[in-house]
Amino acid sequence: MVTWLVTVDPGRCIGAAVCVGVASERFRLIDGRSGPVSETIEADESVRDAAEMCPMEAILVRAADGAPIAP
Rank of each mutant, 00 (worst) to 15 (best):
V18F: 13
G21M: 07
C13P: 01
D44C: 08
P10H: 12
V6L: 05
A50F: 00
A70H: 00
T3P: 04
A17Y: 09
G35V: 13
V8S: 01
V2A: 15
E52A: 15
D65G: 07
V22C: 04
D49C: 05
A70D: 07
R26Q: 15
I69M: 09
V20I: 09
P36N: 02
E25S: 14
R48W: 01
P55M: 08
R12D: 12
V37L: 01
G21Q: 12
I41P: 02
E42C: 04
T3R: 13
V61D: 10
D65K: 10
E52V: 14
V20S: 07
V61G: 09
L5C: 08
E25W: 11
F27V: 00
V8W: 03
E25Q: 12
E52P: 00
A17K: 12
D49T: 14
V61R: 05
R48G: 01
P71E: 00
D44W: 09
D65N: 14
R62Q: 13
E25G: 11
V6G: 07
E39H: 10
C19D: 01
C13R: 04
V18Q: 08
A17R: 10
I59G: 02
E45R: 00
P10Q: 15
D31S: 14
D65F: 11
E52N: 13
E39R: 12
M56R: 14
D49Q: 15
L29Q: 08
A51V: 00
T7V: 10
E25C: 05
G35I: 10
V2F: 08
P36K: 00
F27Y: 13
I14E: 15
G32M: 10
V2S: 14
I69N: 02
A70V: 06
C13H: 01
V47H: 01
S24Q: 12
A50Y: 00
V8N: 01
T7Y: 04
M53G: 02
D9V: 03
F27T: 06
I30D: 11
P36V: 02
W4F: 08
E57L: 09
I69Y: 02
G15E: 02
R62A: 13
A67S: 15
A63L: 10
V47A: 05
D9T: 04
P36R: 00
E25V: 08
P71G: 11
S38N: 10
M1R: 13
A43H: 04
D49G: 06
P55T: 02
V22W: 00
E42N: 03
